[in-house]
């Protein structure tokens, strides 16, 4: 999706410079593509351990306490993503029912980009639950191994 955004932006500059034409829909499309890619990329990056974090407390604590802490933080993460998912879904429903459009000449329907929120946060929750199960059952040794060297 980000690749499409790159190509579209270049197309936009090209169209404006060479054909001296208007660029109306490209700007908005690329922004929405970026947002969608970000939200839908959340669970993948979580799985790939790509989100930056500071493992200071877990390193200081004994293994058992560290495990408990990591479960607590995962539950809290699931909770807060639940909030984002729930109100994101509600917002999406409003844009859908009221037929809100973006305030531009092109004026796309807003429910399309807003859909990325419930979908992205929803999938993210599923990934977090999977992580929680892994920690609880002790499968998540990869995490702790990496830290040893």
């Amino acid at each position: 999706m980000i690749l499409i955004a790159v190509l579209l932006t270049c197309q936009m500059i090209w169209v404006r410079k060479i054909n001296n034409a208007s660029t109306v829909w490209q700007t908005e499309t690329v922004i929405y593509l970026m947002i969608a890619a970000t939200l839908i990329g959340l669970p993948y990056v979580q799985r790939a351990r790509g989100h930056v974090s500071v493992d200071l407390l877990p390193l200081l604590l004994p293994a058992k306490a560290a495990k408990a802490l990591s479960m607590v933080t995962l539950v809290a993460a699931i909770g807060v993503m639940g909030i984002m998912f729930f109100y994101g879904l509600e917002l999406w429903l409003v844009t859908w029912e009221k037929g809100w459009r973006s305030e531009t000449v092109w004026g796309p329907r807003l429910w399309i980009p807003y859909l990325a929120m419930p979908v992205g946060f929803g999938l993210f929750i599923l990934q977090l639950i999977a992580d929680l199960v892994a920690v609880a059952t002790g499968l998540d040794t990869l995490h702790t191994d990496e830290r040893k060297h």
């Binding site: 407390l57 933080t73 993460a77 909030i83």
Partner: peptide, 29 residues
């Protein structure tokens, strides 16, 4: 943030907590 949770998630957790405690549901929404 030191607890090992990812930075972004940690910020969201803290925000949600304080908004709920001091500003009520309307901000959480």
């Amino acid at each position: 943030l030191f607890s090992g949770v990812s930075v972004a998630t940690g910020l969201l957790i803290v925000s949600a907590g304080f908004l709920f405690a001091f500003d009520g549901l309307r901000s959480l929404e």
